[in-house]
Structure formats: structure tokens, C-alpha cells
Computed example of a mutant assay.
Amino acid sequence: MNGAKAWKPLEADGEREVTSHREPGEEFLFYRSVAEGMIDAVQENCSRGAFENMEGVGQLSEDPVTNLRYHFVVTAAMLTRFCMEGGMAMEEAFGLSDEYIRRMDCCTNMAEIVYVHDQMALDYVCRMRNLKKRIASSKQVAEAIDYIYVHIMDRITIQELASAISISPAHLSRIFKQETGISVSEYIRQRKIDMAKNLLRFSDYDFADIAAMLSYSSQSHFIQHFRTQMGMTPKAYRDRNYMNNWNVNRESFTSSGQSPSAP
């Protein structure tokens, strides 16, 4: 096109101090926790002020309030994507994002932005929890699923689960299989493997740590269980998927001559 300037890669400002970015594993674990309806984990993340901790994240503006605004928009976009992948309807996911960005736009200081961020995260996670409970048609099975999500890091027995919702183990086993298509034990195993996959992808915990966190009796038991469910060992899964989304993003940016920043 006549008069158009030729595109060239962005060159770093030599006078600007280069920011050292932290690996985005914590952020991705947060997004996954929201998408999987893990309310306790999201509440813990918000209560310790993870969003407002700017150490090791990209400096998108010299003004601290504007910088936090930009990071808010990134978080909203990521939560929308992860929750849609988790089953949330597209219009609902985008509608929430739009509404909370509008609310954030009315904020005048960092404390207000952090408050709206936490409300947004809790809104998404509660909706995702309810979405995952809708597979159950009875109140008792919905309560059982809710109990499993809250206690996924613990060793859960059918007897304890049945006692928690005040029905017999035999009755729970029957109605759970009838409504979900799988047994209680299999459902618990699947949810533990879901959490293990997130930890393998987005954290540096070793296999013994992950086994202990998820209340497996031993590392070997965890590895055997993982291989049965996934058809590969935890090591093979991590080698294939570690920081997968981030690495793909980094490679695409690097090939264009730009430097990515963690969300």
C-alpha cells in the first residue's frame, strides 16, 4: 500500500529496566480452580491478595492504578476462556466479563479494583460449581458432589460421604451411579486426577508431593492410579503438557520478535 510503513518487530527500550517475569503456573492454577468450581481454593487465593501482588508480573503502565486495570482485563479474559472450556455458555461467560470490566472501569483506586476482581472470581467459581452439580437430578447426589469438590485433597470414603449427607452408603452408591453413570469411587478418582493434571501442568511439585497433597497412600499408588486413568505416567504427562498454554504462547511471540509477559 502506497505510503504505508513497513512492519518491523518491536524493539525494547534500552533505557527501561527489564522486568523479570515469574513463571505463570500460579495464575494458571488459579484459572483452573475457578473453572473447576473449587471455591475454597479461589477464596484462599483472594484472601492472600494474590491479584494485587505485582512482583514478577508485567508492567503494563507506569501508573499503578492503570497497570492494575490492564491486569484485571487480562484476568477477565482468561477466566472467560477457561470457564467456557469447562462448560459455561459462551454468552454467560462473555456477559460476566463485560459486566465486571464495566464495574472495574468505575473504580478510582487499587483497593476498589481488587475488590471487584475478587467478586468476579467468586462469581465465576460459584457458577462453575453449580454447573458441575447440575449433572445430578437429586438433592442428595448434588450434595455428594459438592462434598467431593470441597474435600478433594482428603481421602474420601463412601461411608464418610454418605454420613456427611445423612444417607446410607448403599443408597448413595445406587442413586449416584443411576444419576451420573459412574460409581462414587470412580467419580472421586476422576476428580483427583483432574487436580493432579493441573498440578503437573502448572506447578513444580514432585510426584511424592502431589501424591501426599491428594491423600494417596504412596507415590507408587498415585502413579499407578494416574497411569490407569490417563494411559501414561505422571512424568510422561508433565513432559508433554508442562506449562503447555504458556509455552505455545511464548513460542508464537518469540517467533514474531516480541517478548511475552505473564498475566
Rank of each mutant, 00 (worst) to 15 (best):
F94R: 15
V73F: 01
T108E: 14
N109S: 14
T75L: 13
V74N: 15
D63Y: 03
V114M: 01
R81H: 12
G86P: 03
L96W: 05
I101E: 06
C107N: 11
L68D: 01
V114G: 00
C83D: 04
G87W: 11
A93K: 00
K132W: 02
A121T: 00
R103I: 06
V65F: 11
Y115Q: 13
N130L: 07
D105E: 15
Y115A: 09
K132Y: 10
M90K: 15
M104T: 14
T108D: 08
L122R: 06
M88A: 06
I135W: 08
M128W: 01
R103D: 02
V65P: 02
Y124L: 02
R103Y: 01
M104P: 03
F94P: 00
M84G: 02
V125Q: 00
K133P: 01
V114C: 09
I101A: 03
E62S: 12
T80F: 04
A77H: 15
M110W: 01
L79K: 04
T75W: 05
F82W: 09
V65N: 01
D98Y: 02
C106N: 12
M78W: 10
M128R: 05
L79D: 04
D123N: 06
V73G: 01
I113S: 05
V74R: 12
R134D: 14
A89L: 11
N130R: 02
M110P: 05
S61Y: 09
V57M: 05
F72H: 01
V57C: 07
E91G: 02
E92Y: 03
T108L: 05
E91R: 15
R81M: 11
M128D: 02
F94V: 12
I113E: 12
T75P: 01
F82S: 08
Y124E: 00
K132N: 02
V116G: 02
L96K: 05
H71N: 04
